[in-house]
Every structure is written in C-alpha cells, then in structure tokens.
C-alpha cells in the first residue's frame, strides 16, 4: 500500500519534471514565432480580411462614421463604365505582355544555350532591364517615345514611316505601355528558362539524336519543349500575375489617359482609394483584383500537380 503510494508519487514527480521541460520547449517555440505571427496578423491577414469587409461599407478616410451597405459598392462598380474599361485594358495588357514576354524570353534563352561563347555576357545584358528601377526607366522611355525629339519617332522618320505621339494617342498609349512591360519582363523569364534548360539531362539529347531526331527542331519538339513544360506554365502564370499588378508605368506616364484608354485595375484602385479616399469602393476594386490573381495562382497549382503526375 505504502509502496504503491511512493511509487505513485515518484511517477508523478517524474511526469511533472518531464512536463516542465516539454512545456519549456513549447514556450520557447512560441516565443520564437510570436513576433512574426503578430506582425503577420497585423500587416497581412488582418488587412486582407479588412479589405473584404471594407468593400461592403461606405467608409471614406476621415469620415466620422460608416455604415454597411451590402453589395452597393459592387453594384456601383459594375454599373461604372470606367471599371469595365479598366478591366478590359488590364486584360488586354496581360494578353499582350504575357505571350510576348514568354516567347521572347524562351527564344533568347534557347539562343543563348545553343552556343557556348559569350553566354554570361548576353545573360547579363538581357537581365539589365529587370534590375533597373522601373520608374526611372519609364521616364527614359517617355523621352524615347517623345513625339518630336524621341528616338523611336526619329528612327521611324528616318525609315520613311509615319510617326506617332505614342503616349498621348488613345490608340497607341496602351500598346506603348505593353512594349515597356515586355521590355522589362523578358530578362526575368529568360533566366527562368535558362535554369530549366540547364536542368535537362544532356543524355536525352544524345538519345534523341541516336533515335533519329536529326534536326534541331525535331530535338526541340522531342526533348526540350516537353521537358520545359513545368517551367513554361510556371513562367506564364508568374508573368500573368505580375502583369495584373501593372501600375508604375501607367501612373507616371499616362495616369490612365488619354480619356481612360490606358486605365488599369490597380490604377483605378489607387485613384479611388488614395486620391478620392473612397476606401470602401477602393476595397471592392481590390477584391476584384484579388480574385483574378488568386485564380491565376489556382491554375498554377492545378497545372503544377498535373506536371508532377506526368513526370
């Protein structure tokens, strides 16, 4: 009886000692993650929830009160011509920039990989636009596209072609922004493709040659293109998400003009949210933007899964 009791207390003592050490460890772990997760709630997850909540209110910065107005912001948005123009322009921008930047990026990567000389020099040159501060380069582009003194029109005139006032013309403003977008994104895509190309085992090409794929094109179709599949979908989605976020060039070069011909989603959101301080309406625009970006991410995740299955 007394023996059993002492054993029991001993067991309890051991258990509690173990628990103290285990708790101590867990506490350390929570201590280590606490700052990060507090900030994450404060700066990321909280704001994300708020932006959705805000989109159902009529809150305006500085207003003393606000009220829940249900879907009114969305109704207003869908009835607004500017929103539809902005959405269409954004999609147009994506549809032009993504294929342009992806095919050019792939082409340059293939060209660089197809020979041994000057590889790193070319890689460096093509990567320069990625590194350069986009706002500064946008200013340079503006001058390049200057109707009178710009390089582009100068060259066109020299070749006997008609000149344009690129950024001031409704029909060309968005195209000019797309061109800058492609110019900036090509190097980034090229580097991703180069990484993909390097990881293709050389023996596959040798095997393809022995199996009768004599031309470079046949080897590309048989080996390169399928092996690059996952990288390609990845690059497409990344380019898509980045194009959806286009803002810097629009804001500094056209402010969405002339007459809304280059208005894009984030720029509309910026104008409503930070120039007119209509936070609720701006939030509704943000939600639309978020839906598109998350949609792209979902597609990426689905494609990535399928890529793994095929491999």
């Amino acid at each position: 009886m007394s023996d059993a009791a002492t054993i029991d207390t001993a067991v309890v003592a051991v258990r509690s000692a173990q628990r103290i050490r285990r708790d101590h460890r867990a506490l350390t772990a929570y201590g280590l993650v606490a700052p990060a997760f507090t900030l994450m709630l404060l700066m990321l997850l909280g704001p994300l929830a708020s932006v959705i909540a805000l989109s159902f209110t009529d809150y305006q910065l500085g207003a003393p009160a606000f009220s829940w107005i249900g879907l009114a912001n969305y109704q207003e948005m869908f009835a607004d011509r500017v929103f539809w123009i902005s959405l269409r322009n954004t999609l147009t921008y994506v549809v032009i920039v993504v294929p342009g930047a992806v095919t050019l990026g792939l082409g340059i990567a293939l060209l660089i990989e197809s020979g041994a000389s000057l590889r790193s020099l070319y890689r460096t040159i093509y990567f320069l636009p990625v590194m350069a501060t986009l706002i500064a380069m946008a200013v340079v582009w503006e001058f390049m596209l200057h109707p009178q003194f710009g390089l582009v029109n100068g060259l066109l005139r020299g070749a006997g072609l008609p000149a344009f006032s690129w950024l001031q013309d409704r029909s060309t403003a968005l195209c000019a922004l797309c061109a800058i977008g492609i110019w900036q994104a090509v190097g980034f895509n090229m580097v991703l493709f180069l990484a993909g190309l390097v990881s293709i085992p050389k023996q596959l090409y040798e095997a393809a040659e022995i199996d009768g794929a004599a031309s470079a094109w046949a080897r590309f179709r048989l080996v390169t293109w399928p092996m690059l599949g996952p990288v390609t979908t990845f690059v497409i989605v990344i380019s898509g998400i980045r194009s959806f976020q286009v803002f810097d060039t629009v804001h500094i070069l056209t402010k969405g003009g002339p007459s809304k011909s280059s208005e894009v989603l984030i720029h509309t959101m910026y104008t409503e949210g930070f120039e007119f301080f209509r936070s609720g309406y701006g939030a509704a625009l943000t939600v639309v933007f978020l839906v598109f970006v998350l949609l792209l991410t979902l597609i990426k995740a689905r494609l990535a899964d399928r890529g793994v299955q095929h491999a």
Partner: peptide, 19 residues
C-alpha cells in the same frame, strides 16, 4: 528527447528535469 514514461538516472540522480 524527453521520454514519454520511465526514468533515466545518471550516477544515481534522476536526469529528467536536467537540460
């Protein structure tokens, strides 16, 4: 690794609460 049950003694001293 803290054990789930049982005891470790080093030179006769229970080591469970010792780092």
């Amino acid at each position: 690794e803290p054990q789930s049950a049982g005891e470790v003694r080093i030179d006769g001293v229970a080591a469970d609460a010792i780092r």
